[in-house]
């Protein structure tokens, strides 16, 4: 019998080791697995490499992890948010390494990681500071930049509903990086608002099939969200 449900957030993140690479979904706080990241903070792993679109908002989730010095490096497209003070302080103090990646290149590098593609060429960033040090090759007379795949030891994602096989359904723009990151890690952990009966999700409506998901933990939506 396949049952990917785990009983607690603590259990879901227990085996993240110091130095792990963790893909964290979300666009701003929408689709961000805040409670999983909070559980990782409580678990205590250090020296982490985080792959995310942003670098945390306010004092919770990714911001808390960065603010308490657990993140050695962040690979992201846009570290500025409405309230990025945890990242800003770490950045100005030289306590966090920033690898800035164009958003579509970030998404494609993660997709490639999940798809068994080692690297790819793109026109995006050619001729800019972001391409410095990267291999450049001409295709159709235009410079293209070689970008390497990203894989995580873990992917932390967030969905609206799941069944015990780990089939996932997202809601609105909270889908964002979740389906892409789900495919690109050794262990994919999904926090979901609710569990539904196996078979109750129409196969045509499964957004991420359970083959990509290792653990499911229920975190009911708080009234404000």
């Amino acid at each position: 019998m396949i049952d990917k449900r785990v009983a607690s957030l603590a259990e879901a993140v227990a085996d993240v080791k110091d130095g792990s690479t963790v893909l964290c979904s979300g666009f701003g706080s929408v689709g961000e697995p805040v409670e999983l990241i909070e559980a990782l903070h409580a678990q205590g792993a250090r020296d982490l490499v985080i792959v995310a679109n942003n670098a945390g908002l306010g004092d919770t989730g990714l911001a808390r992890l960065i603010g308490s010095g657990r993140v050695r490096k962040i690979i992201c497209s846009f570290p500025r948010t409405a309230d990025p003070h945890c990242f800003d302080e770490a950045y100005r103090a030289g306590k966090i390494e920033l690898e800035l990646v164009p958003q579509g290149t970030l998404s494609e590098r993660i997709r490639a990681g999940g798809a068994g593609i080692t690297a790819f060429y793109t026109r995006v960033s050619a001729g800019t500071d972001i391409a410095k040090g990267k291999e450049v090759r001409l295709f159709n007379g235009e410079p293209h930049v070689l970008e390497e795949a990203i894989r995580g030891d873990f992917a932390f994602i967030r969905a609206e509903s799941a069944d015990r096989w780990g089939n996932l359904v997202y809601r609105r723009a909270a889908r964002n990086f979740n389906p892409v990151m789900a495919c690109a890690a050794e262990v994919t952990v999904a926090q979901v608002a609710r569990i539904v009966e196996l078979g109750s999700i129409d196969p045509d409506h499964v957004h991420t099939p359970g083959i990509f998901v290792d653990r499911v933990v229920v975190v009911p939506r708080s009234p404000r969200a």
Binding site: S77, P79, R80, G104, I130
Partner: peptide, 16 residues
């Protein structure tokens, strides 16, 4: 140098 840079999707949009 104290203002962290931010790309978002700008490079993708400018090229694509």
């Amino acid at each position: 140098p104290t203002f962290p840079p931010g790309l978002g999707g700008a490079m993708d949009l400018a090229v694509g």
